[in-house]
Design a protein around this nucleic acid. Structure first.
Lengths: 223, 223
DNA sequence: CTAGAATTTCAACAATTGTTGAAGACGTAA
DNA sequence: TTACGTCTTCAACAATTGTTGAAATTCTAG
């Protein structure tokens, strides 16, 4: 059981350690020495593989962003195909955005859990949120919004964008698993029960989007 | 115009500088020297007034939390009185939660803007979110949820808590003003137009809560 | 003005930071 | 074996970190 280190999985051990620690304490709250210790390697090795600290941070983010994007686009296209030639239901589109986070036993994988918390950190940070999230996720999101618009004809773009912002805030906060809702609800709701959280959030968000149709119709009616 | 320092507003200058910098870069991303420089005082003064760094962070959070809580409770009770003896409308309750953030020309005050971004950072951080937010805001939130339940009879508590979690995520992300939605919407939506943001988020969140009634009725009907 | 308390600055501390260059260990192909 | 390129460690660097004790300044009573 000793000497299980294959060839150079130390590189990935560094990524995993960095992912976990950045998720917990943020970029500046983590030292390269802490990462190296968690990964069981020397401090200098992180710099050898990834360059400066900031580049390691980007590498951690990028690794799973690509996978997640492809999973979400897959689920979205399947939803579109499923409903064709009609536009899909709003709730099914929202589900296509949420369910890739849960499938393939991701919930059990601690790496993905850390990654979700990390995304929450990046998303709500004035330092990273504006640029990094855009860079990694916007093309996928635009495709998602385009499909959502077919299900919500006549809804102004501004409502759609703010609606997505609400979705994004609710989703990232829930997946950050801060333990907040556990305290607030006296353990009626559990931060780490992501499938359960998804059920509720999907309903909430779908209702928020669906209501835009009624609102936009009421608006045009008064003209 | 020189020598405008009154008595000991240096203490507040430190709080303001810390607030602004913590909001931008998080707890670990800010040094006491950066705070002191921004405040125009010596490094040691922060420690003299507030003790260790962590206590300064708490002091920054606490200063406006108390004010915000009282404003929100005021607005909530006014809403209740206004609708009595009937329960208020869902949207009016949500508005009572949002509008204190905008009133009294807070939008212009950079201090409050920084504070909102700081709350977003704390809220989504696994390190602070579970404990600090609970400590500062939970009593006010419980009163808010109690009133909301009168407007949404029969809705299960679990739905209510997850609904609040969605509200909280959407609100804090928007008020973090990361510039994210500006990029995503090609400047159709502006991060720093908080009143505009509130209009859209209030509608979205109110719809999410209101839909819970229909859902819970449909559920009991199938039994 | 004077004494004493509160505030502010100065200078320095031990510890930690990201990064680097040289040396060592490993794997592979001749 | 030898040689060579990749991976890993070691040791150390200059800079920065939070914190502190003593000195200097300012404020407030008497």
């Amino acid at each position: 059981m000793a000497a299980e280190n294959k060839k150079q999985d130390k590189r990935e051990a560094i990524l995993n350690a960095a992912e976990s620690l950045f998720a917990k304490h943020g970029y500046d709250g983590v030292t390269l020495r802490a990462i190296a210790k968690e990964a069981g390697v020397d401090v200098a090795l992180a710099n050898y593989h990834f360059g400066p600290k900031r580049d390691l941070f980007d590498a951690v983010l990028l690794r799973r962003a690509q996978i997640l994007n492809s999973w979400r686009l897959e689920a979205l296209e399947a939803t579109v195909q499923n409903a064709a030639p009609n536009p899909p239901q709003v709730k099914d589109i929202i589900r296509a955005y949420f369910e890739p986070l849960l499938k393939r036993s991701q919930v059990q994988e601690p790496g993905w859990k850390s990654y979700y918390a990390l995304i929450a950190y990046v998303n709500s940070s004035p330092e990273w949120g504006g640029t990094l999230m855009t860079q990694f996720f916007d093309p996928m999101i635009h495709r998602f919004l385009a499909v959502l618009k077919t299900a919500l004809p006549g809804v102004p773009d501004k409502s759609m964008y703010w609606g997505y912002h609400c979705l994004s805030g609710a989703l990232t906060l829930a997946f950050a698993q801060t333990g907040r809702i556990d305290h607030l609800s006296d353990d009626l709701c559990k931060s780490d029960d992501l499938p359960d959280a998804c059920d509720y959030i999907v309903d909430f968000v779908a209702a928020g989007f669906s209501d835009m149709i009624a609102a936009s119709q009421k608006e045009t009616a008064t003209l």
